[in-house]
Write a protein that binds this DNA or RNA. Sequence first.
DNA 1: CGTAAAACGATCAACGTCAATCACAAAGCG
DNA 2: CGCTTTGTGATTGACGTTGATCGTTTTACG
Lengths: 264, 264
Amino acid sequence: MLERERQQLILNRLKERGIVRVTDLVAVTGASVATLRRDLAKLEDTGQLRRVHGGAESVASGQTELTAPTFGASQTTNADLKQAIAARAALLCEDGASIILNAGSTTWFMAQRLRSHRMQVLTNSFPIAQELVAHSANRVVVPGGEVYREAGIILSPFDEDAIQHFAASMMFMSCYAMTPMGVIESDPLVARAEAKLLSRAEKLIILLDSTKFEARGNMVVCPLSRVHTVITDPGIPRAMREQLRSQGVEVLIADPAEAKLSAA
Amino acid sequence: MLERERQQLILNRLKERGIVRVTDLVAVTGASVATLRRDLAKLEDTGQLRRVHGGAESVASGQTELTAPTFGASQTTNADLKQAIAARAALLCEDGASIILNAGSTTWFMAQRLRSHRMQVLTNSFPIAQELVAHSANRVVVPGGEVYREAGIILSPFDEDAIQHFAASMMFMSCYAMTPMGVIESDPLVARAEAKLLSRAEKLIILLDSTKFEARGNMVVCPLSRVHTVITDPGIPRAMREQLRSQGVEVLIADPAEAKLSAA
DNA sequence: CGTAAAACGATCAACGTCAATCACAAAGCG
DNA sequence: CGCTTTGTGATTGACGTTGATCGTTTTACG
């Protein structure tokens, strides 16, 4: 049985039953436990399921199903790096704090690691809000606006919003790119939404994998001087790393090998 | 049985019954009391239930009681009547229109019948927004605020909100009760949220089954004069029906027998 | 108010599951 | 053909989960 066949079978069973057991999969596929574990690890890295002791469950298990359509695509690229970065970011969170998460695949991975936290979380991502409401004790606040189908982002062209009363110590932001010009997005509405969120936070912590330190996109969300910390992976160019530090930006390197240790 | 399976089962029973006993869970799951206790402890840690001596109760019960106590439970009571009312309400919707749906089980049923519509929908219900984004072509707008876990209602104590720019021809509202005093809710925050939504709509269409024409609750959302139409079932008292019509309120009677025909 | 029963948290040994590592086989490529 | 790459299965020690037992606390009831 091919690897793809097994993984498809796993996902199908997950859809039907919401949860799968490793031992059952061994019986069904005929593959060894080691192989099935590797399959599950890959599927988890790409955000298509969540592993639990003894098997795996659907990422949207329990509540009403929620899997943003194109969301999955964004998750697949560099998923292991993003997982590591998300794990590192989650370590900075303490119970009782107020934080902001923008819409992005890295912040979504991070949200999955906040299950045992008790914080106030503001997010403009519908899937992240869903995840936190259903599976954690965190209080969840969302801005007003239209819910865009593609990625489940909540966007509004207006300034009035209930979140004007929100105050956060940290904002964790996953973005399109980062250059000496500042933090970059490709969509004007998204950039605007993130700038609005950012105005409610004290420290800005950027989460981005090392493939994004290149000039692209066109909308500057904020200058580098606004950035307090950058969490990235070992692939960050040395020049960029030193430039950031010379500007007073803290640079944290997340080790993909350690990511699993701090997993929820 | 996997740990997550048990925990999911516990939460489901809590949704249905509001309270669970450890001894019952032992009988159902086949696990030992120690294991069940550990499960309950974990679920309490993540805020998904509250432990009491002998078992656990839903976090919603005891707290402020929202319109849809545990959503699932509220859906089941008079579900056939609500389905009929929801079906009748959906007939009033036309593509291109802008409508508002408040958080409630009847409006949730209605949302399920809007899959083939193309409208602009404003709702303060997280599950309804989820349903429409995932399974319909409607544009979805939500107000800003905190997402309350119990029923997935989005509430905010502040006036500023992006929805101030929303304009709807109709608001479909499921409420706690209806009396000569007006449209009634039991929770002040919920009443406030609905009043805010209502200010963005031209016509107000009330969806409520005939068991709710009694004096209860304490918060008046709006007077009867604000109501344009009431959609209910044949069980509505004749006196109430005539009183409403004498005040210029249109009364539509949904036939539960016809409900199946227009089901999605 | 006092006693018995039930429920509770803590502890521990047994077991299942996990990640890491190794060796092997098949496929891709120069 | 030899080499690397990729997928696979078995082994191992570490870790998480489980159920039984203990002494303690809470509840129920006379």
